[in-house]
Amino acid sequence: MTTPLADALIELIQVEINPAADDVGPETDLLLTGVVDSLGVVRIVNWIEDEVGVEVDPVDVTLENFQTVSAMVAYVDARRAHA
């Protein structure tokens, strides 16, 4: 099951960031195979800040929080809970 946020992130990745990527799911490792590269990560961070309205501390842009769409969703949820 996916959440609306997960679906939106997957769409962002497949449409905007890497049109060549297919089969991106919530648990796909985005960073190992380079589906998302370093500039792609920056675009995701900007999108989360602009579209979701959650501020992302640069210290948090790590493997734990950005390796998969699920990790990103968990991170955003945690930030919201803190706000």
């Binding site: 370093s38 792609g40 790590t62």
Partner: peptide
Amino acid sequence: VPEPYLRLPASLSQ
């Protein structure tokens, strides 16, 4: 340094 670290500078510096 595994590949994912090259895409996440904050993790690489760590």
